[in-house]
Amino acid sequence: MNAHPPAGSPSRPAASDPWLATGELLRLAKDGDARAREELLTRYLPRLQSWAEGRLPMYARSLLDTADVVQDTLLRVLEGIDRIELRRPDGFRAYVRQAVLNRIRDEVRWAARRPGPDGVPESLSDPSPSPLENAIGADLIERYERGLARLDEDDRQLLHLRIELDFDYQEIAEMTGRNSRDAVRMAIRRALERLADAMDHEGPGAVP
């Protein structure tokens, strides 16, 4: 009486199966499977958009559609997927995070340089912070980002999925090909400890 095929069916994986691990989807996408690309998009896009909105300055948000920025970035990543050399198949997530952050920075710089209607660059009149900066403070976010940058891709990905995108342990286990939610929880605890180590070394006002 089950209306859906059971998860983990032994038959050949279909790209539309949402329980394929990210690595498997990436392999299918690299082989040109359009449905795998679509699945990657639907899996990440909504949460990435929420996340990115928190990191876009208010004035830039009025000029850019965050959803478009994120979707466009993700599509570009997927289009170039056959050129990405990933050390681990599940490194995709960290790559996307960086790509979206870079794109936001580019867009913000572009928006800041673009003159307003009266020819005055808007950045001079409205240097508003992002919602995240508003809530936490730009210096502390910088410290967090520098700490993250010192971690390996695996740790960065786990923290991004759990801390920033709010995926649950089971989802992360399935996305990263780990055995169990307990294994993920343990791995995240260690990643957090290494992040705290890295941030301790940064310290308040430390030079990157």
Partner: peptide
């Protein structure tokens, strides 16, 4: 700091 970022993001 991490905890505050986590709370905000979630």
């Amino acid at each position: 700091i991490v905890s505050r970022i986590a709370d905000f993001s979630r």
